[in-house]
């Protein structure tokens, strides 16, 4: 008996986690997928009824806004955070004496909750008392910066706050990448008289392709999951102008009592994450097996 126990201890230790993952991750995904194919409203129902919920999503102007917002927000957030992160990393890579302190400053927002970030930016972007009022107070009476309350522009305030929060992290990733490039190659290039900026564009940056991919995955993942920042900064408003799929799902689940819509929008989010992460995970795991 004790021999059996001894031999199977690794499996016994892993078993509870295995069960937890199968139930709380995969089982729950299955439950949500199933319910997204029913007519569930306030209470879940289990009779399948084709793709009715997805048809409702497709015709819902609110969900359309949410998807368009995700596209605008996601694209701008990913592109700007990557460019800014790379720029900061390259600037910091020039043998800067205060590098440690600057790195700490650029990265600290990442330690904050999105709710804190949203609260801070909501105050800064407050048209009556924040940045707008300040610049007007300096004598630029016609200065306007009321994006927070402008339905067409509010989504960009979320982009600003999200970039402030995450670009330092991208910088840290890229900086680690820059430092891992072979010193000898760089020295050889310098000896050959290749201009400094060419060393970056022709040698260092191309060799960091895997880091670009990781940064992209992390940022895309953050963008799709963005929920707290929107809640704290705009509450999804004005109206539902800054809704994202995550806030749409939450509203359907907990304030509208529309479980079918909540489940189907969650599945759409899941599919978007799938499309981005699965090829990445697949390639990662394959490389490790070789």
């Amino acid at each position: 008996m004790s021999k059996w126990l001894q031999d199977n201890m690794p499996k016994i230790v892993l078993a509870p986690s295995f069960v937890a993952v199968m139930v709380f991750v995969y089982g729950f995904i299955g439950w949500t997928a199933w319910v997204s194919l029913t007519r569930s409203r306030l209470m879940p129902r289990y009779e399948l009824d084709s793709f009715i919920q997805y048809e409702r999503l497709a015709t819902s102007p609110r969900f359309e806004t949410a998807m368009v917002n995700l596209f605008i927000f996601g694209t701008l957030f990913i592109v700007i955070a990557m460019v800014l992160g790379l720029l900061l990393a390259i600037l910091l890579d020039q043998k800067i004496r205060t590098e440690g302190a600057l790195r700490t400053i650029y990265l600290y927002p990442m330690a904050l909750s999105m709710i804190v970030t949203g609260t801070a930016w909501k105050w800064i972007l407050n048209p009556g008392l924040g940045l707008e009022a300040m610049v007007q107070g300096w004598g630029f009476e016609s200065f306007e910066f009321d994006w927070l309350v402008d339905p067409d522009m509010a989504i960009y305030t979320i982009v600003i706050a999200a970039i402030w929060q995450s670009s330092g992290f991208v910088m840290a990733l890229f900086l680690a990448g820059l430092r891992s490039v072979d010193e000898e190659i760089i020295k050889a290039a310098q000896v050959d008289g290749i201009p400094h900026w060419r060393v970056y564009t022709a040698i260092i940056i191309p060799s960091m392709a895997p880091i670009f991919l990781s940064a992209f995955i992390v940022l895309a993942h953050l963008a799709i999951k963005s929920f707290d920042l929107v809640i704290a900064l705009t509450g999804g408003g004005p109206g539902y102008a800054t809704d994202l799929p995550a806030t749409y799902m939450y509203a359907m689940a907990f304030s509208r009592g529309d479980i079918g819509q909540a489940a189907s929008s969650a599945m759409v989010m899941m599919l978007v994450v799938f499309a981005i992460v699965v090829p990445y995970l697949y390639s990662e795991l394959r490389v490790k097996d070789d």
């Binding site: 499996k11 969650a266 795991l285």
Partner: peptide, 28 residues
């Protein structure tokens, strides 16, 4: 303590890191 299936377990677990939690909110 690699045993048959340990890698599959790890892959399943790893994937769980990436799911948007909205997909488990209702059943949870």
């Amino acid at each position: 303590w690699r045993f048959k299936g340990a890698n599959i377990f790890f892959a399943l677990m790893l994937f769980g890191c990436f799911i948007p939690f909205q997909v488990v909110l209702l059943p949870m």
